[in-house]
Amino acid sequence: MKEKIIVINNETGIHARPAGLIVKEAQKYKCDIFLVKNESQYNCKSIMNILSLGGKKGDELLIRAIGEDAEAAVEALSRLLEGNLDA
């Protein structure tokens, strides 16, 4: 298992389009990937889970990946989430 804490950086938070990007990225990896907020775990491969997280700018989230390519997945997701998702 691999974990990393990140902060959401884009103005509008995780709305439909950014959520779509997260899901697309997560689907590239074999491992299970989650975002954890307030101890609830949200599946990064599920658009509905990611949307229902309701992530806003400045929110602190934990990325958690379990499986063979966990390290690469956490790396990629943190780059995406801390970058500008609106661009």
Binding site: R17, S46, N49
Partner: peptide, 16 residues
């Protein structure tokens, strides 16, 4: 058309 891409994603949502 992008909205329908999102609809396909919802359709294939593993959680659902």
């Amino acid at each position: 058309a992008a909205i329908f891409e999102a609809h396909i994603m919802i359709l294939e949502d593993p959680e659902m």
